[in-house]
Amino acid sequence: MREIDASRITEAVKELCMKANMHLGGDVLKALEKALDEEESPQGRDILEKLILNAKIAREESIPICQDTGFAVVFVELGQDVHITGSSLAEAINEGVRQGYAEGYLRKSICHPFTRQNTGDNTPAVVHVEIVPGDRVKLIVAPKGGGSENMSRVTMLTPAAGIEGIKEFVVKRVKESGPNPCPPTIVGVGIGGTFEMAALLAKKSLLRELGSKNKDPELQKLEAEWLEAINDLGIGPQGLGGRVTSLAVHIEMMPCHIASLPVAVNIQCHAARHKEIEL
């Protein structure tokens, strides 16, 4: 059994919170540059240029890419041969969020649902733990902004709806979201599992490297087809009209109940932030 002190997890989460919010991933930058090549609308091109410049300023001046530094969503792949000492895993993560959001001058955006009283330190984090073989701990911090999260939905389709029904739901969701989720977006789609698993699959799909292909050839084909349908909507950068509404569609799928066809769409704004480390 390998022992890992909770303080190491706190330190790692703190650093990841700051880095994720200030350093836009190279894959996202590359996708924005590709979008700039494809965009026909002058206004859309101007916006994409500014988003690329914005990422540069954030990195060089160590300020957040976006003022909405998000809900701290933390994915943990915990090796089953690891024993965490000194504190609980949850507390170690929350302490990392607390420190990262304070030291990084990140916005505290978490509040009581009724009173709207801010918790003041951006905790609690949303933590998803998966127990995996081995003695390593992988931590992924994915700050999620409210604007694009608000446009996300879960639905329970009938099995009769089939692939066409799923596509219709996904494209309609992007259409109805219009300018709200800060396009160009990444559209995360979770298919199958149960009600809550579909949503989690959709969120997980957003962690995949932008520009990478789905390992499942059938899903790879659907991702390309649905992206085309979405970009035909003409919503464009910031919803002001244009060719590039979304940078990618990512699908994660698992088997579902014979009675069900759960589908979730988790929309991610262009400030697609996630950083990871393995301890």
């Binding site: 957040p64 976006c66 003022q67 909405d68 001058y105 916005r107 608000n150």
Partner: peptide, 22 residues
């Protein structure tokens, strides 16, 4: 419509883009 991120030392404000208006 904005909730800026906190101002780091020497700056008037942190990041300060718009929030969704609806």
């Amino acid at each position: 419509y904005v909730g800026p991120s906190p101002a780091p030392p020497g700056r008037p404000v942190g990041a300060a883009g718009p929030t969704t208006s609806y």
